[in-house]
Design a protein around this nucleic acid. Structure first.
Lengths: 225, 225
DNA sequence: GTTATAATCGAATCTGCATTAGATTATTTC
DNA sequence: GAAATAATCTAATGCAGATTCGATTATAAC
């Protein structure tokens, strides 16, 4: 019968967390399975008990990071009683604070997604099971990319709603969101926990940059693109 | 005596350009020297006549991209007779259009800089000349990073000037510039030449997002962070 | 305690590249 | 055309690092 995993044994999630950290420090290609294993006191070989391949591990790291972020942001989008501006503000805050609180994941979401796109197919003469596994990987990867698009659409929907209702200026919604997410993601690249500003402070600052483009107070709307 | 290179022979610059393209498609670690060589009809071995190592080639790609961008933007910063806002607008435009015109380089500037940080030192038992070469590489890499900082400071200087003179709101200058450059760099990640908008149009759009945070027309400044 | 399987390890493989070695060809200079 | 060197090639070399294999240990279920 199936048995419960032992308590002191390393579980999937611990590995993913540790891997995110190692990846952010060494980068996907430079980080070895041995490095990652060492971070959880395992051998490289042992990692293959938990993940089919290095690529699969990377995918798991990115999926975890994305789900984490979506789980924080998605509820905000449908909060009744909040204006589009209020929701957008809250979403930006959550996004940036989330990145700042998990710089490893934040950096991975920018840099290592790249590696995901370049996963190498099994070479000729690969066992059929390997080909199978790779196709499963591709399917899972596509799902990840769709999920990432869904994340972007959370922002688009709120901005779009604000534009429709006249609360926001008629910006180009896809481009606005790309610019916003670019700025937010970039935080994961340069943020240092021991830096001058906290994640909260940075979030407040950056929110203040993007909101005025959408909302102009006191009716002074002319003169703006 | 030194002789002029033959006319039909491949030169450094062609290799760098081709390498940028290959790198943007395959990524640094995935792209092989053979791939890059093939893009200029050479053999992998031949590349070593032009570049000491793969790392050195990557560095050359990034240096070229950075110099290109700085050369377009630096002159704007000191144009007499233009307000800070006018200069900043022009700088953003040049930056984004530059990225859109060279998507390969733009993407490399975001993704592959990472690889640069992870260049591997020569293994033990390396010939002293190799150690020498690696140290030279490190020096050059540091210079590159300083140059990149200098690039960032071009933006900071203009924003700072606007803030000092009262033309701009008192934003947190370093953070503002990080957010701006994040949005701009991100264009290199998602821009497609056959997309809906031209580089110019995107530049105009994004400029319109950041300027209102700095400049509020018609004196309606209250209510803003 | 016996069995099944989860979790781990040490010690091979196996292979894909970066890089080197040693020619060969091309071009310029004189 | 001879000398020098730039530019290229073909054919190794070498190695790091992902992945596999086959054992071994630990734990849960019964």
């Amino acid at each position: 019968m199936a048995r419960k995993p032992a308590d002191q044994s390393v579980n999937r999630e611990e590995i993913i967390t540790a891997a995110a950290d190692v990846l952010s420090r060494r980068g996907y290609e430079t980080a070895t399975m041995k490095d990652i294993a060492a971070a959880v006191n395992l051998t490289a070989a042992s990692l293959y008990h938990h993940f089919r391949s290095k690529d699969a591990l990377l995918l798991a790291v990115l999926e975890m990071g994305l789900e984490f972020t979506i789980n924080r942001i998605q509820p905000i989008t449908c909060q009744r009683g909040l204006s589009a501006e209020e929701r957008l503000r809250a979403m930006i805050r959550e996004h940036i604070v989330g990145v700042a609180d998990n710089p490893a994941v934040g950096a991975a979401m920018v840099f290592e997604i790249h590696a995901l796109s370049h996963a190498k197919p099994p070479t000729r003469r690969a066992k059929p099971e390997d080909v199978q596994a790779f196709e499963a990987f591709l399917t899972q990867r596509d799902a990840f990319f769709r999920r990432r698009d869904a994340f972007e659409h959370l922002f688009r929907a709120v901005v779009q709603e604000g534009v429709r209702s006249g609360e926001f200026h008629p910006v180009d919604v896809p481009i606005f969101v790309k610019a916003l997410l670019g700025a937010n993601n970039w935080v994961g690249v340069w943020y240092r926990p021991d830096g001058r500003l906290s994640g909260e402070a940075i979030a407040a600052e950056i929110t203040g940059y993007f909101i005025p483009a959408l909302v102009m107070r006191k009716g002074a709307r002319d003169g703006l693109v």
